[in-house]
Each structure stands twice: as structure tokens, then as C-alpha cells.
């Protein structure tokens, strides 16, 4: 009852007890601050969780088609794999437990800047202009 009185004073409900959406939209800045902050927080937490997913197999795909599936834990000597397609050229560096793009002839260089994707996790490497994607196959044993 006290609650209802409070809502009435705030203009959230009218005298018939109906919710007044207009007032909510107009008055309640903090509701939106809270909702938007929650989205940001959830996004960051989810991303941290996702980047902790681990596995030993790295999948390299172009245009959704598998180029190579590599067991990163069994790489003895590091090597460079040249992925050249009609879209462009990337040099993928494969080493024990990690994979990265070291060279790309695309303008944005995001895939190079993303650094290493390791068997302990990390975000998938995407080179949008070349439709190239490198991800760690989830072995389902994550905490």
C-alpha cells in the first residue's frame, strides 16, 4: 500500500492505479541508465567468459568452408600458412598452443592486431574483407 502511494507521488501511476508509461519515459532517467549499464556489464562479463573457452583444435575457415583443422598442442615446429583466396591473402602463423595472423593485405589490419588465439582461449580471429575466420573448437571441458 505504501508502495502504491509512492508510485502515485512519483507520477508512475494515475489515480485509477494504471501505469502511466508516459511519465516513466519522461521522468525516469535512472531506469534507462540502469538498463543500459546492465547491458554493458552483461556484455563484458559474457565476453570474458567466452574468451576463456579452451580447446586444442584450431579451425581455419574461408567463406564457411574449412581450410584446415590443426591440433595446436601437437605442433612441433612453428610454421606459416598462406591462405590465399579470391578475396585476399593472409599469412597465418601456427605455433605450439597458439595461432595468429601475422600479415594481411586488407586495409583495416584488425586480424593482425587481434594477436594470438591460444588453446587456453581468446576471441575468434576474423578478417571480414577476406571472409577468413580462425576459431578454437570448443572441447566442451570448460569450467
Amino acid at each position: 500500500m505504501l508502495n502504491l502511494l509512492f508510485y502515485h507521488k512519483q507520477g508512475l501511476i494515475d489515480k485509477h492505479g494504471r501505469f502511466n508509461y508516459n511519465t516513466i519515459m519522461k521522468k525516469k532517467t535512472w531506469i534507462w541508465v540502469l538498463i543500459l549499464a546492465a547491458v554493458v556489464l552483461a556484455g563484458v562479463i559474457a565476453t570474458i567468459r567466452i574468451s576463456r573457452r579452451s580447446g586444442t583444435y584450431a579451425l581455419i575457415t574461408v567463406d564457411g568452408e574449412l581450410v584446415e583443422r590443426i591440433d595446436l598442442s601437437k605442433v612441433r615446429e612453428s610454421r606459416d600458412l598462406v591462405v590465399e583466396t579470391a578475396y585476399g591473402r593472409n599469412i597465418v602463423h601456427i605455433e605450439q598452443g597458439a595461432i595468429s595472423v601475422t600479415e594481411a593485405d586488407c586495409p583495416d589490419q584488425i586480424c593482425v592486431l587481434m594477436g594470438k588465439l591460444t588453446t587456453d582461449g581468446g576471441m575468434p580471429i576474423i578478417c571480414m574483407p577476406h571472409r577468413l575466420m580462425i576459431e578454437i573448437e570448443d572441447d566442451g571441458l570448460d569450467g
Binding site: 554493458v40 556484455g43 575457415t61 567463406d63 576471441m123 575468434p124 575466420m133
Partner: peptide
């Protein structure tokens, strides 16, 4: 659009951070 191009569901890993960055 990215999912249609790369044709891999793995790009969804970026959904949360893109939602957060969209808000900011």
C-alpha cells in the same frame, strides 16, 4: 551481415561485446 558472409556461427562470440559497445 557478418554471419551471412563468414557463414560460421562462431562470430556470435562477438555478440555480447558488440551489444556493450553499441550502448557505450
Amino acid at each position: 551481415a557478418c554471419m551471412l558472409v563468414v557463414k560460421t556461427p562462431g562470430v556470435l562470440a562477438y555478440a555480447p561485446i558488440l551489444a556493450a559497445s553499441g550502448v557505450v
